[in-house]
């Protein structure tokens, strides 16, 4: 079996550009999903019924449909429906943010519900208002507990951006495919890209584990 890595040596900048797009898309998506997801999660736990029911339906729908389907639908169907054609990057950003926000919302909900009712009672006994209790007692502890799950959200986001290749977003996976097609060296190209993904994903989970160990005691009541 002869391996020829020369296409990689020639086009490493092309691939690196793809990596840049991957990282940019991931960071923007994760940030958006965290903000939207937290809002949805808080609405789910503390909101009135007319807010909670649609939010639950939205979250469950996102859990039921594959990312690939959401990406494709968003890119093609939305442009047909609205007449606006989005650049694939922005379509992917919107679709992924909306999808991952649902998972963030569930993490937020689980975190808040894991706080002992005794903590709320102790804060009430001091005379705090419900809003103050959520802000000063429940959320700080819940945030610590959510940390490992949030870490995995970033990891999941990066992995999901690879699916954006199906709508031709010029991220790493797409560029790998293009390069593999042009050079007829799929094994070398995909193997190297595998290593690249592994290098960006592996340290992330380790880092979050370490960080969590140090602050876990702040969330333990």
């Amino acid at each position: 079996m002869d391996l020829d890595f020369s296409p990689l040596l020639e086009s490493w900048q092309y691939l690196l550009g793809g990596l840049g797009v991957t990282l940019l898309l991931s960071v923007l998506t994760a940030a958006g999903a965290l903000v939207l997801g937290t809002a949805l999660g808080l609405g789910r736990v503390y909101g009135p019924a007319w807010l909670r029911i649609p939010i639950v339906f939205y979250i469950d729908t996102q859990r039921a449909i594959p990312v690939l389907v959401i990406l494709v639908w968003f890119y093609f169907a939305v442009s047909i429906l609205t007449g606006i054609s989005f650049h694939p990057f922005w379509a992917a950003l919107m679709a992924l943010t909306l999808h991952i926000a649902a998972y963030v919302a569930e993490i937020v909900r689980a975190g808040i519900e894991s706080i002992r009712p005794g903590q709320v009672r102790a804060a009430l006994a001091l005379g705090m208002s419900r809003v103050q209790i959520v802000r000063k007692v429940v959320l700080p502890q819940a945030l610590v507990r959510m940390l490992p799950a949030f870490g995995s959200i970033l990891s999941i986001t990066i992995k999901d951006t690879a699916i954006a290749t199906v709508i031709a977003v010029p991220e790493l996976m797409k560029r790998a495919e293009t390069l593999a097609g042009q050079s007829y060296r799929p094994i070398e190209i995909f193997t190297v890209v595998m290593v690249i993904y592994f290098i960006i994903l592996f340290p992330g989970t380790r880092l979050i584990d370490m960080l969590y160990k140090r602050v876990a005691h702040l969330g333990r009541s």
């Binding site: 990891s155 990066i158 992995k159 999901d160 951006t161 690879a162 699916i163 290749t165 996976m173 790998a176 495919e177 799929p186 995909f190 890209v193 595998m194 993904y197 592994f198 994903l201 592996f202 989970t205």
Partner: peptide, 9 residues
């Protein structure tokens, strides 16, 4: 730590 779509390809 790998995207599944990459593993498929």
């Amino acid at each position: 730590n790998l995207p599944l779509i990459l593993v498929v390809y």
